[in-house]
């Protein structure tokens, strides 16, 4: 875990690299999350000052979007699509299986910190569902056996 001053120094660099960008807040938040795996609290006042916003406004933006995390995720992130097309081919069943296997609900992380399970509403794989994204890798036609195989890979 980097200390506060290291976080602030890196955040300041990221902000500086976005000079001249129109509407820079989302690109900055994405870059910070890419760097740290989440958006550390310590980053918010730095961003607020640089963009002439209140800290509350920055927090408001960050918390509006599902992508930005206040806390780090598990070492691996498994996203399962919950949307209609995937439901039509058994996504609910697959999700229930994954939750039972991991012993966590949506947004939960296994106690060993290995896997975070998240819902996603559409990966654009609607003709080959149920769809999943495992650490950024897309997987189509996921069934219970496939879930077991994917979880075995990451645990």
């Amino acid at each position: 875990m980097p200390d506060q001053s290291a976080i602030i120094a890196r955040v300041s660099e990221i902000i500086a690299s976005h000079q001249g960008v129109e509407g820079p807040l989302l690109p900055i938040l994405h870059a910070i999350q890419h760097q740290f795996g989440h958006v550390p609290q310590a980053a918010l006042p730095v961003i607020a000052q640089a963009l002439s916003l209140s800290k509350a406004e920055v927090h408001g933006v960050m918390s509006f979007y599902h992508d930005f995390r206040e806390e780090p995720a598990g070492r691996h992130v498994v996203k399962l699509c919950r949307a209609e097309s995937c439901q039509s081919v058994g996504a609910d069943r697959v999700a229930a299986h994954a939750q039972a296997r991991l012993g966590v609900d949506w947004h939960g992380t296994t106690p060993d910190g290995a896997v975070t399970l998240e819902p996603v509403f559409c990966l654009g794989l609607c003709a080959c569902g149920p769809a999943a994204m495992v650490d950024g890798r897309l997987v189509g036609r996921v069934d219970e056996a496939r879930v077991d195989a994917l979880l075995a890979e990451v645990r």
Binding site: E22, G23, P24, L25, L26, P27, L29, H30, L51, G60, V61, F64, Y65, H66, D67, F68, F121
Partner: peptide, 26 residues
């Protein structure tokens, strides 16, 4: 190229514009 951040409502054009400007996607 700009990247969204997981808000479905940003497909609505005015919400998308707010998001592009760096605001909540209302």
């Amino acid at each position: 190229i700009r990247t969204g951040a997981g808000a479905y409502v940003c497909g609505e054009e005015t919400s998308l514009l707010n998001s592009l400007e760096g605001k909540r996607g209302t």
